[in-house]
Design a protein around this nucleic acid. Structure first.
Lengths: 187, 187
DNA sequence: TAATTATTAGTACCTGCTACTAAAACATAG
DNA sequence: CTATGTTTTAGTAGCAGGTACTAATAATTA
């Protein structure tokens, strides 16, 4: 490790911790060939919290994200539901859902929103077995608020057909038709 | 807090820490009206690591998850790529991707796999603007290994058409056609 | 009632810090 | 070259949230 200047080391520390927040001060001090105290001073002036706080923050941030895709949850916020008839959900998009260069929301977020709403509108345990007429009409930009509407359009035995539209300000950005079937549970 | 038995407390502790791993032993001891040492013994016999380890594990797990859906990454493992021609990826599914009751893999994982492979096969920066002929043919069970194949079937100006199939043991479980357009970047 | 199981108490030690004081090393200007 | 300021290093005390251990006390059960 060749000797580098304070300002340079500061940049490096920020970079290193950005893509791996799990280094202790001691490990960093070895990495940069300076004392632990120097690393502490560096963190102070860069307003970087201690290891345990960094780890905690990563843990809590992503726990929220995972939970929103978890058991029984729907992607977005369910604001209206008439079982076996129709449902409405909204989803506030942000940059974490988008490609960082283009700021265009990744398609599977939109799809997940539609899918989970389609599942939510049916009361029983269903599995998605078919999707038809899917169309992404215009790209969604990070920050736009999506409104999804689901409508059960047909039921044949244990098979349901659900249509889902997603709009931004009344402009349709997505639409599709889902085919769902009830699943019998053996517990 | 009424007095409960050891076994009952054990179940409760597991449950509590499952949906919030951020409690200290002291907080748990207050919650259950027992001493800190009892909580420690409980954790020992349940093989539950200490707070800091729990936090760290949540953090690393979710950091991986975020990274695997991050910049330029594809869902699954890219095993073959001929730019602008075709690509193959594989994805080992597990229970974390499935509905816990039915063990059926959630549709958006499959969709994300197809979408990211379609994006990967095109060299430039593209946005997904259309999907057609999507079909989930049979449900995928947790544990099954998905093989996705993408093929560029047409190119009109900045617009690409990519077909993606996903198979489990040569049985097709998904197929679709993506429409992608190049994006001009202003940095 | 005795034996067993569960709970509590207490001590020493650990990691990865914070907060602080003070000395040493280095750089730069006059 | 010396004085001044900046940067780095050293060292101490204390904290949170533990581990690992010993030992005593309470509650259950045979």
């Amino acid at each position: 490790m060749k000797k580098i200047k304070k300002s340079e080391r500061h940049q490096e520390i920020k970079k290193v911790l950005k893509n791996n927040p799990f280094f202790t001060d001691e490990e960093l001090s070895e990495k940069f060939g300076v004392s632990v105290q120097t690393i502490r001073l560096d963190r102070m002036s860069l307003n970087i919290p201690e290891l345990r706080e960094r780890v905690k923050s990563v843990a809590t941030k992503n726990l929220q994200k995972v939970k929103s895709l978890g058991e029984g949850e729907i992607v977005g916020e369910l604001i209206d539901l008439q079982l076996n008839k129709n449902a409405i959900s909204i989803l506030q998009t942000d940059e974490s859902m988008a490609f960082s260069k283009t700021k265009i929301v990744k398609g599977h977020y939109i799809f997940a929103m539609a899918e989970t709403l389609a599942l939510a509108v049916i009361e029983s345990n269903v599995a998605l077995i078919g999707v038809a007429n899917v169309k992404y009409r215009v790209p969604v930009k990070a920050g736009e608020k999506l409104v999804a509407k689901a409508e059960v359009i047909n039921k044949r035995g244990s098979e349901y057909f659900v249509r889902v539209w997603i709009n931004v300000n009344n402009d349709q950005v997505f639409r599709s038709k889902f085919r769902l079937v009830s699943i019998d549970l053996e517990v």
